[in-house]
């Protein structure tokens, strides 16, 4: 195990983030605050409670997930795409690094960043709504697991992308719609039965559902199923990374 390298990559990525810390944190926090103002206070006051939870509080887990997913993907994809783009990747490729070590460094940093952001958004939320967290340990567990899973996904994206456009297109066309359709702002019950079934193909549904359960003890999908699906998704993403490194796809000629 090349531990110095894993630490070096991790520190390097974290340093890149702290240089732009204000931007990285302020804009998501402001955006989320606006959601609370609009959905929580303005519209939410006219929406009845969902599963006994006021609407403003109901959307908190979903909003945190929304940020966690987009930030994990963005951080990890940019982290590995940028050296490919500038050419500094030669150094990682010529270093005594195994794929596991590279992924641990990049994904670890990306997941750390998005987890910190999620916790800050959670803290922001408490300023707007009364929150309760029934299962705090599970809450943290789901937070970290999701951050890791989507950082791995972002890493794959960063390895695959051939341009900055592609790098942004996938989050825009895939991640954001999946999140909005994944029960961030509603309970699946409100959908017609057909669309409920379709929703079950959306991995984000399981994340949001399980995460919301850790807050309020209620969920659209059983927690065990959610856990299994998140695990499956993580394995799929890891398999994709493994394949990229094994074949050298878009990394080595």
């Amino acid at each position: 195990m090349n531990l110095p390298a894993v630490i070096a990559i991790y520190k390097f990525e974290m340093a890149r983030w702290t240089r732009t810390l204000l931007q990285s944190l302020v804009s998501p926090v402001i955006a989320t605050s606006l959601y609370f103002v609009v959905f929580g206070a303005a519209i939410g006051s006219r929406i009845t409670e969902i599963d006994g939870v006021p609407y403003g509080a109901f959307i908190v887990p979903g909003l945190i997930m929304l940020n966690l997913l987009t930030q994990s993907v963005a951080n990890a994809s940019f982290g590995i795409y940028f050296p490919r783009f500038t050419g500094t990747i030669y150094e990682q490729l010529s270093a005594p690094l195994s794929p596991v070590e590279i992924v641990t460094g990049y994904v670890g940093a990306a997941a750390t960043k998005s987890t910190i952001l999620a916790l800050i958004i959670l803290a922001t939320a408490t300023l707007f709504v009364d929150l309760r967290i029934d299962h705090p340990a599970w809450m943290v567990f789901f937070l970290v697991l999701t951050a890791i899973t989507f950082s791995v996904l972002g890493f794959v994206l960063g390895l695959w992308a051939e341009s900055f456009e592609q790098l942004q297109l996938v989050p825009l066309l895939v991640i954001t719609p999946l999140t909005f359709l994944g029960g961030t702002f509603y309970s699946l019950d409100v959908l017609p039965e057909f669309w409920q079934k379709v929703s079950l193909l959306n991995p984000v549904v399981y994340l949001v559902s399980a995460f919301r359960w850790s807050f309020y003890g209620t969920s659209d999908v059983s927690v065990q199923v959610s856990l299994a699906m998140i695990g499956l998704f993580l394995v799929l993403c890891l398999a994709a990374v493994w394949w990229v490194f094994k074949t050298g796809y878009r990394l080595k000629s």
Partner: peptide, 13 residues
């Protein structure tokens, strides 16, 4: 920073 980073990548403390 960049030179120290390289040292780490190559497995040296």
């Amino acid at each position: 920073a960049t030179v120290s980073h390289s040292r780490g990548l190559f497995g040296k403390w």
